[in-house]
Design a protein around this nucleic acid. Structure first.
Lengths: 137, 137
DNA sequence: CTCTAAGTGTTATATTATTACATATGTAAT
DNA sequence: ATTACATATGTAATAATATAACACTTAGAG
């Protein structure tokens, strides 16, 4: 048995639907929408939204992908320690999304929420930015 | 034209639809969904989703309310300086939402995103917590 | 008063996500 | 190998969230 929230064991224990959805997100590298995934994987045998959503739900639960709430999209997780936490920058001009890689993010984040009677279980941070190339042009 | 007092210019320039939507959110104090707002304001003359969404869009733009992306809901803004930035705690157990009041949030937040070539224009932070009363019970 | 930007009302439709239910599969314990 | 159980699958229907298109109205500046 494998521990809950890490990326070990590669994709071995995934089911067919879970794997093809994960593969697509992995190869794409950018955020994809559920119905785009559905269209893309018609030829692999995915026929209904539910098949996609079920796979996505599971992959989110496993910490292999993240949902970016403000754009209803899903993206491969490229951190090893973010569990169900997400932190992204989203370019307001070109839409490009990057996951923030900051080992200490989780700790620093806790400091932001001053009411210490609260216990942060997870977080979802979406930073809208002007990315490097959009800033230049 | 309304020439009463200059005190609360606040909602004066709002249109009828914008005002009744804002009033509802103000009186409620908790996050409401667009279609709930629609149902609630049928008697005030709101008949279609679009009327609600247009009012909501404008109010968000004016910084008077916020959208909480992960629950597709809107809530009154009770800060004076957050502009289009949002930061909330959401209880995972009871769903209770609170806006984080931290004057220095915007500054501290910038430190989190290490790549300084990026310029943060706004942010949306959603912290899932176990709130005080849920923690006890 | 006239012009223009913004808002309104309405119908239709697009997009995102879930419910319900019957069937199939993987895995661990017998 | 068989049973039992949890998990996943396939499919149809529908719910929930949000926008497009178009004709009309209103508010406010000059």
């Amino acid at each position: 048995m494998n521990s809950t929230h890490t990326h070990s064991k590669k994709n071995q224990s995934l089911t067919k639907n879970q794997r093809i959805v994960l593969d697509l997100l992995q190869n794409s590298g950018e955020p994809l929408k559920a119905y785009f995934i559905l269209d893309s994987l018609k030829k692999e045998g995915l026929n209904s939204p539910l098949q996609v959503y079920r796979a996505l739900d599971k992959l989110v639960e496993l910490g292999k992908i993240h949902k970016i709430e403000s754009i209803n999209s899903f993206i491969i997780c490229n951190n090893s320690n973010c569990a169900s936490n997400t932190a992204f920058t989203i370019c307001e001009r070109c839409g490009k999304v990057k996951e923030i890689k900051n080992k200490y993010l989780k700790d620093s984040v806790s400091d932001l929420v001053k009411d210490n009677q609260l216990e942060i279980t997870r977080y979802n941070l979406e930073f809208y930015v002007l990315c490097k190339s959009c800033k230049i042009n």
